[in-house]
Amino acid sequence: MYFEAELQGRKYKVDVHEERHSWKVSLQLEGQDWKHYDVSKTDFQHAEEYVSFLFEGKSYLIDVLGQDTEYTVFARNSFRTIKIFNDEMLLHESLKKGGGAGSNVELKAGMPGKIIEIFAKEGEVVKAGKPLLIMEAMKMENEMRASSDVKIKQICVKQGDSVENGAVLIKFEKPS
């Protein structure tokens, strides 16, 4: 199975094959050669909460969170979020959108929290850098700003709402 992946802004081509006793995983960092890894299934074992992964002489307890196109992998208290797509086009679309509020068509909550105040108004055209709303999570207030000039199409939350991670807060359109 062929994937395109992205980790910390670096793009990879990924190929995974399942054999009877092992996983054949190949990785190619953009501009470099393919590297091939043969991971025995006994070295990638599902335990109750996590995966015990024995790799290149090291023992890792791994937990993979997520589904479809985005996975966060935890290992030794480090963690990385990886975007992974079957289709090259999809990855490129996703990366194009990745510039924060404004270049996105939507402003999403980066963490679960509570909406403290909303400055933006529907139909309003706002300049880059203008505060859109304040969200509070765990005693900290975070001001979310527009990263480019946009028109506010729809405000999907109201003051006092509790929102989940990834919830859509505001929808934008290009200013006419």
Binding site: M1, F3, A5, L7, Q8, R10, Y12, V14, V16, E18, W23, V25, L27, K35, Y37, V39, F44, V51, F53, F55, Y60, I62, V64, Q67, D68, Y71, V73, A75, R76, S78, R80, I82, I84, N86
Partner: peptide, 19 residues
Amino acid sequence: EVNDKVFLIAAAITAFEDR
């Protein structure tokens, strides 16, 4: 402490299994 390929291989195998 953890090399990127550890994260990538784990994500890749998981993505494969999920699909």
